[in-house]
Design a protein around this nucleic acid. Sequence first.
DNA 1: ATACTAAGTAATTATTCATAACTAATCGTT
DNA 2: AACGATTAGTTATGAATAATTACTTAGTAT
Lengths: 389, 389
Amino acid sequence: MQLTNVREHNLGTVLNTLASSDAPLSRATLAQATGLTKPTVSRLVDELLAAGFLIEHAPTRAVGAAGGRPSVPVSIAQAAVVGLGASVSADHVAVNMIDMRRQVVAVAETPVTRAPTPRDAVVLIADLAAELLAANPHTRTSGICVSVPGRLSPDGRRVQSAPNLGWEDAPLAELLETAPGLEDLDVSVENDARLVAETEIVNRRGEGFVLVYGESGIGGAVVVDGDIQRGANGWGGEIGHLCLDPRGPECRCGRRGCLEAYASYWAIAQQSMQTGSGYISEFFTSLEGDAREAAIERIGSSLGLALSQVLNIVDLPTVVLGGYFRHLAADIAPLVNAQLDRHALAVEAGGVRIETTTAAARPSLAGAALRAIQPVFDAPAEWIRRFEA
Amino acid sequence: MQLTNVREHNLGTVLNTLASSDAPLSRATLAQATGLTKPTVSRLVDELLAAGFLIEHAPTRAVGAAGGRPSVPVSIAQAAVVGLGASVSADHVAVNMIDMRRQVVAVAETPVTRAPTPRDAVVLIADLAAELLAANPHTRTSGICVSVPGRLSPDGRRVQSAPNLGWEDAPLAELLETAPGLEDLDVSVENDARLVAETEIVNRRGEGFVLVYGESGIGGAVVVDGDIQRGANGWGGEIGHLCLDPRGPECRCGRRGCLEAYASYWAIAQQSMQTGSGYISEFFTSLEGDAREAAIERIGSSLGLALSQVLNIVDLPTVVLGGYFRHLAADIAPLVNAQLDRHALAVEAGGVRIETTTAAARPSLAGAALRAIQPVFDAPAEWIRRFEA
DNA sequence: ATACTAAGTAATTATTCATAACTAATCGTT
DNA sequence: AACGATTAGTTATGAATAATTACTTAGTAT
């Protein structure tokens, strides 16, 4: 432990404590929450105020007590720093901007007629980013994170495969770093399901969960203590290819009996003999009658079995349904629960809650921007230095 | 981060760096390995030397270089502190002693004719511990950890159920703490499979793995970055009750198609119509001909399928087979690999290594003692104070 | 002998948080 | 209105720790 890191660590603690609090907090409350002493917190808060990362509010009188000096609540300043998120899909490219309150302040989008090449996608992203930055001229920007519906290399610099975009081994991080207008930004790339998980981590304040995300395929993430489990090759949480039955239906991946072969968009479309309009969520809302019944049954029970397996291995209290599973949640939850009751150990103890993603719209885009700005919370001193220079 | 903790942290870093090195290290090497400066390391090493936690060796000349002052290697002193491990099973109670080199220095054992009650087990453990401590009078002891073949409460103080011992909701930690002779020791209780994992963590230097441990049931552990994943209710890594087939054979736990219902001792014994001598490893070595073939086939393929599921969720590079699986490893490995090839994503990238537990004998007992002494490595300053007082 | 190299030590400095005492601001009671 | 009680926040001082810099030590190579 370098002594230099202690202040960095403590500044981060203060900032993160404020970030995960709904209301502004006083220095005294912060001291109690962080375990640091009042003078220490005072110093740290002053430093963050000077950097423009925090703002002071009007003094408020003590809560229920008899007297006492009014406290001066501080909270995170919106405009101090922003992060950019981007997402690429077969029909549009979008970029958004998030402030340090973790609220989206701007979105820009370009529709495309067919899936862009990696190079085209980067150009579109750079243009949209420039547009957003021009419209908000006085902000300092930490970085940009791009959400991709596909699998990444373990180092996160290449997109190994994104079937929906037709990408194979695309050096996306490198393209982004050299794109005009993005030179000064920290660049990262991440899988869309993982970024939905990032949004959930923020909204759930670090409690562990298993995310299942239905889009073109079925993605997922396992989150323990606020950290996404990546594993040795970056495939941690790839719930879509859990084997439910070795003699089950064939999957796109060439294996047999994967969850995707039961509960994915293409599997259900195939099963119900419908072509699908191309828009996944529309497809599911368009299903009616017996076809809908059958799809619900198939999705609910296969998902329940897969989740039983996941929960027996990682033992987490919450399952979060995202993507089109979110829209079907009310219908599939009883079926999922029935399977969990039958197969999951965790049900005997604390039980398992089935919930849906908390973000209203574009959770992976929101997650991308969150990922872009998170470093500022983790190492404020470094960013204070960078923005001064 | 309290400033007080910095030294504690750095002492721990130095001690753990030395512990995970085969050879003694010089102060200069330690400085490089830990990222601390030479003067700082010098101070920390001197402190640990004064406490008797380290010893200096004779100076050795520089390795391949042209000249230079000879370095003075230091290494961990064996006798500084010992930890006690204990294990309880249906036919014996054992206690061992491990030094800070993490080597077993003494073992004592009492056979029993039938499974002891919790109270009797504690008496036997305390007697054996007293015996070992009396035979090694000049050592300071950190604590004792007891290995139990059963499921613990989330706080680790009660044995919720241990079918082999006939225990139900036994307050083992409390009984141990009040046992005569153990008053001054830190007491803990842990599941046997988890303690086998603890041994593997030490021997594998923190690389992640999945452990499958076959004894009376099938236990397991998932280890990521040197940490055993426990989960919300303490059931993380309970691979034995993964569901391989919802319509599969009935399991002891009341569910259907659990791995245990295919690959456990009792399932195989049932299948092969043999009574079993009572000793599990003897049972498997006694199997011959078709019965053995069938058992291998059944164990290998079910284990392979279960491991495929685990690895798709946690994506780790190594599977470690323990307990009776260890003895069958050569035979079942091809079958396991065949299933992994068919169902596990990880095989496509780095591949998965199938290995066996590294400890020669009694891995759970060794793990118990390791667990007992580990706190000394993590917070040396605290123990230096405790031993001074 | 001399130069060179690397290990380890010593003295000083800088950074940081902890402690304790103090000031500030408000409420309630007398 | 005066006073005490209460809580927030600041100031001054102190203690702990690692970083920096320069130095000494003990060898090898020429």
